[in-house]
Design a protein around this nucleic acid. Sequence first.
DNA 1: GCGTTCATTGAACAACCGTAGAACGAAGCC
DNA 2: GGCTTCGTTCTACGGTTGTTCAATGAACGC
Lengths: 186, 186
Amino acid sequence: MSAEKPRRTRAEQRRETEARILAAARATFAELGYERTTIRNVASAAGVNAGLVMHYFGSKEELFSRAAKLPDEELPVGHPAEALLTSLRRRLDDEPVASLVVLRSVLTHAEASGEFRAAAATWLDRMGAAIPAADAELRAALISAIINGVVIDRYLLKLSSLADAPADDIIDLLRPCFESLAGETR
Amino acid sequence: MSAEKPRRTRAEQRRETEARILAAARATFAELGYERTTIRNVASAAGVNAGLVMHYFGSKEELFSRAAKLPDEELPVGHPAEALLTSLRRRLDDEPVASLVVLRSVLTHAEASGEFRAAAATWLDRMGAAIPAADAELRAALISAIINGVVIDRYLLKLSSLADAPADDIIDLLRPCFESLAGETR
DNA sequence: GCGTTCATTGAACAACCGTAGAACGAAGCC
DNA sequence: GGCTTCGTTCTACGGTTGTTCAATGAACGC
C-alpha cells in the first residue's frame, strides 16, 4: 500500500518530470488544440504545479514548440505510390497523437503554422522528386492533402464511416488514387 | 464629405446591423477559429459595440451557431464522380468562407462538431446511395475526406503548391481518384 | 406632442489566463 | 555537518474574456 521510495537522483527526477509534462502537453494539445490548452491543465495532468511548467519551458509557446516537434519521418523506399501508402498506414496505425498535436494546433494557432509549413515543404520536395511528371509538385501536394484529410476526418472529426473502418480497407480503396497521382502506371 | 442620411426605418436598421455582425462573425471565425475570435473583435469589425452583439445573439456560442449555418447544399446530378467533382469545384471557386468557418472552427471548438457531423452524415448518406458498391459508405467518406483535405491545405494551411494551383488542374488530377472511388468505371 | 419602444452605448463584474517571484525542503558537494 | 543548489509549490498581478445592466437618444404609435 505504501508508496515505494525509488530514491532517484536529482537529474533523473528532473528528466522524468520534464518528460511527463511533455507527454501531458502532447496529449492535451492534440485533444484540445492550442488555445483551449492551459498551462494549469497540462500541469495537473502531469501531476505537478503550473509554475513548474513555466520554470522548465519558459512559456506556453515554448512548451508547444517542444511538444510539437515531430521525429522527422524518413520516407519509405520503393515505388512512390506504395511508399506513400506505407506512410499513410503508419499514420493510421501508430498512435496518431504525434501528428495530431501538430495538425490540430496548426489549425488553431496561427503562429504554429510556420514549423508545419517547413516540415511539409521538405516532405513535398522529396515526394515530388520521386514522381515522374511535370506537375510533380502539385501531385505530391494532393497526395499530402488526401492523407491529411483522411487523418482529420478519422481522428479529429471522428466521422463514423472513417473512424470505424479498418485501416486495410482505407489503404486498398486509396491505392488507385495514389497510383494515379504518383504517375505509377501512367 | 458629409455622411448621407438614409433615414432607415428601425426594422431595416436592425436587420442590416444584424447582417453586418453576422458577416463579420463569419469572416472572423473563418480566419481565427472559435477560440481566438472575441466578441469585441467581431463587434469592432462590424462597427458596433460589443454589448450589442450580446443583446442580439445572446452568447458567443449562439453567434457561432448562427454564423456557421450552411445553406444546405443541393447535390449536383449526373454520374456520381462528375457530380462530386462539381461539388469540389464549387468549394474551390466560390468564396470559401462559408465552409471555412465551419471547417476551421469545428477543429477548434469541440462543441461545434455536432452540427458539422450531422451535416456530414446526410451528405454521406445521399452520396453513398449514388455509389454502386457494397462499401459505398466508406467510399463516400473517403471522397469527403479528400475534399476536406484539399480545402484545408489550400485555404487554411495555405501550402503553396496547392494554394497557387489553378482549380482546373486540381480537378483534372483528382478526376481519376473520384472515378475510382465512386465506382464509375468499375 | 407625448409617452413608449428599442437600437445602441459605456462601464463594470467575475472568471480565467499566462506569467513572475518569493518561499520551502530535500539532494548535492566540500 | 553546513552551505549551496535546485526541484517544486504557493501566492499574486495584470490583462483579456464572456457577459450584464443601467443610461441615452432617436424612431414609433397614438
